[in-house]
Computed example of a mutant assay.
Amino acid sequence: MSIRHGLLALLDQGPRYGYQLRVEFEARTGATWPLNVGQVYTTLGRLERDGLVVPDSEDEEGHLFYAVTDKGRAELRSWFDTPVPRTSPPRDELAIKLAMAVTVPGVDVHAVVQAQRRHSIKALQDYTRLKARALAGESTSSEGDDRSDLAWLLVLDQLIFQTEAEVRWLDHCETRLAQYSERQADLPAPSAASDAPKARRRTRA
């Protein structure tokens, strides 16, 4: 997730100070990826260092406003115009967990999969309820009243699709694990005769 570009997108609409940026960022994403003010100001410092924003003014309460520069607008447009790359996908903790679980003796991989499936299905139900409430609120508001509602719905859709895909992947993992167990069961067991020469050699030694 690019906090950097998210803040640039907000500043492109006018100067803002740190707490405003935090509140607006969370409003547009439904606080799915909550920020703290420290993260915001750290990112603003880096944006200022790179010439993408500049301090603009202060209000009567001492809040320092930041404004986007022409270079910052160019960076933002490039971000919007460039597809998110899939060449270096982010680390997925669940995929790593299952990859480790199948290689560590004594781990009940089926139990790991089932526990995750229960959790994912509950999350999917929660997201679906949130979407229903968001749609109900959207239907009672005037058309074009608040684009933040649309932004939140898009985020919810992504979360729902992602979680549905995760549940399907877990089902696929169960099938693959069952197939592996069947292949292992079909392998011939080591014969006692093949072990006998080794035992005799050890005895003579």
Results as ranks from 00 to 15, higher is better:
residue 9 A to C: 10
residue 160 I to R: 01
residue 120 S to T: 13
residue 41 Y to G: 03
residue 99 A to V: 10
residue 29 T to G: 04
residue 25 F to T: 00
residue 116 Q to P: 12
residue 20 Q to Y: 03
residue 72 G to T: 02
residue 63 H to I: 14
residue 39 Q to R: 03
residue 80 F to Q: 10
residue 36 N to A: 10
residue 76 L to E: 04
residue 176 R to M: 15
residue 131 K to L: 11
residue 129 R to H: 08
residue 137 G to V: 05
residue 64 L to G: 03
residue 97 K to Q: 11
residue 38 G to L: 08
residue 172 H to W: 13
residue 83 P to A: 03
residue 97 K to D: 07
residue 182 E to V: 15
residue 179 Q to V: 15
residue 149 D to G: 11
residue 10 L to E: 00
residue 52 L to S: 01
residue 107 V to L: 03
residue 124 L to R: 04
residue 192 A to P: 06
residue 98 L to V: 11
residue 186 D to Q: 14
residue 198 K to R: 08
residue 6 G to C: 01
residue 85 P to C: 08
residue 74 A to M: 11
residue 49 R to G: 07
residue 62 G to R: 07
residue 87 T to H: 15
residue 66 Y to N: 00
residue 53 V to R: 00
residue 91 R to M: 09
residue 84 V to W: 10
residue 4 R to C: 02
residue 176 R to I: 15
residue 64 L to Y: 04
residue 170 L to W: 02
residue 110 H to C: 06
residue 168 R to N: 14
residue 69 T to G: 02
residue 91 R to H: 10
residue 16 R to G: 01
residue 187 L to C: 12
residue 169 W to R: 15
residue 2 S to M: 09
residue 142 S to Y: 08
residue 36 N to F: 10
residue 154 L to W: 05
residue 34 P to N: 05
residue 88 S to E: 13
residue 145 D to M: 12
residue 187 L to G: 10
residue 24 E to V: 06
residue 192 A to D: 07
residue 35 L to E: 02
residue 93 E to W: 12
residue 128 T to H: 04
residue 58 E to K: 10
residue 178 A to E: 05
residue 67 A to C: 07
residue 58 E to S: 13
residue 203 T to Y: 12
residue 156 L to C: 01
residue 171 D to E: 15
residue 85 P to L: 07
residue 96 I to R: 09
residue 15 P to N: 06
residue 189 A to D: 10
residue 8 L to M: 05
residue 35 L to R: 02
residue 71 K to P: 09
residue 50 D to L: 11
residue 71 K to A: 14
residue 65 F to K: 01
residue 65 F to Y: 05
residue 120 S to F: 09
residue 15 P to D: 13
residue 40 V to K: 00
residue 151 A to S: 13
residue 33 W to G: 06
residue 171 D to S: 15
residue 135 L to H: 09
residue 115 A to Y: 14
residue 22 R to I: 03
residue 136 A to E: 14
residue 59 D to R: 04
residue 141 S to R: 12
residue 196 A to K: 06
residue 203 T to W: 14
residue 80 F to D: 11
residue 192 A to N: 06
residue 145 D to A: 15
residue 105 P to Y: 03
residue 165 A to V: 11
residue 4 R to E: 01
residue 80 F to C: 08
residue 167 V to W: 00
residue 167 V to M: 02
residue 121 I to G: 05
residue 157 D to Q: 13
residue 100 M to Y: 06
residue 56 D to G: 13
residue 165 A to G: 14
residue 155 V to P: 01
residue 153 L to P: 02
residue 172 H to K: 14
residue 12 D to M: 05
residue 201 R to A: 12
residue 114 Q to W: 13
residue 160 I to G: 01
residue 136 A to F: 12
residue 108 D to C: 05
residue 78 S to Q: 15
residue 143 E to C: 07
residue 157 D to K: 09
residue 119 H to V: 14
residue 134 A to P: 05
residue 73 R to H: 07
residue 111 A to T: 11
residue 205 A to D: 10
residue 116 Q to K: 14
residue 38 G to W: 08
residue 40 V to S: 00
residue 94 L to A: 14
residue 137 G to E: 12
residue 110 H to I: 07
residue 15 P to H: 02
residue 192 A to C: 06
residue 77 R to F: 12
residue 53 V to N: 00
residue 156 L to G: 00
residue 146 D to N: 10
